[in-house]
Amino acid sequence: MTIDSDSFLTALRLSDSFLPVGGYTASYGLEQYVNEGRIGDGDDLRALLAGYLRRVVGPCETVALANAHDASSSDDLDQLLEVDARLHAVTMPSEFRESSTKAGAKLCELLAGTEEDLASVDVRTGLRQKFATRIDAGETPGHYPVVFGVVAQSRGLPRLEACLSHAYSFVTGLLGAAQRLGRFGHTEIQRVLGDLESVVVEICDRHVDDDATAMASFAPLAEIMGMRHERAGRRLFMS
C-alpha cells in the first residue's frame, strides 16, 4: 500500500473525531444496549462492535462508500444516487438513517465552506456539487458513507484507504460513546480498539470490491436496539 502525504492527511482528517459532523451524538443503538444491561465489560463491547463491523459496516456502509468512490471517479451521478437510495433502504432504524444523513449533509456543507483552495471548476460544477445540490433539495438522503466516498475520491484518497478510514472512525466513535455511557477504562478501550483493527481490515478487504447490488445488513438485534432507543427512558444520544 502506498499513499501520498496529502491523501494520508485526508484520511486522518476524515477519521478524526475533531471533524465537526456530529459524530459524538450518534451511538447507533449502543446506548440502548447499555440501557438494557446487555454490555458488561470490554469483552462484550469487542464482540458487539465486531458484529457491527461484520454485519453492518462491512456489507452495508463499506459497500456504499466504495461504490460512491467509484461513481465519483467515473463522474456518474445516477450511480451515486442509486448507491445513496440503496443504503437508505437497507438501513432499518430511523434514528440510524437520521444520524447518517445529518452527518452527510454537514460534511457536504463543511467542505463547501472550507475548500476555497479546491474551488476549481471541477469542484464547483462537478459531481460533488451536483450531489450536494440534490441533498439540499431533499431529492436524495445524502448518507454519510456516500458523501465520505465522494469527498475521499475528490481529495485523492484511494478507495480501500477511504473504507479503512471510515470503518476505523466508526469504531472509535462507538468506543467513545461506550466510554461516556458505561464505565470503561481508557486502557481497556484501547485494547478493544487494537483487537478490532484486524476486523476493520478484514471487512474492508472483503467488501471493497462488492457490487452496489450486494449491499445489505443483517444485524437484527442491533436494529431492534436502534428502534427501541426511540422510546428509551434515558437518551444521551440521538441514535
Binding site: 456530529g22 454537514k106 444520544f237
Partner: peptide
Amino acid sequence: GVETGACPHTGIREDPSMNLA
C-alpha cells in the same frame, strides 16, 4: 431537544453541527 452524546460543551463549541441542523 438535541441530544449531545454526553458532551454538552462539544455541542455548543467545537461541533455545533447538530444544533445547526
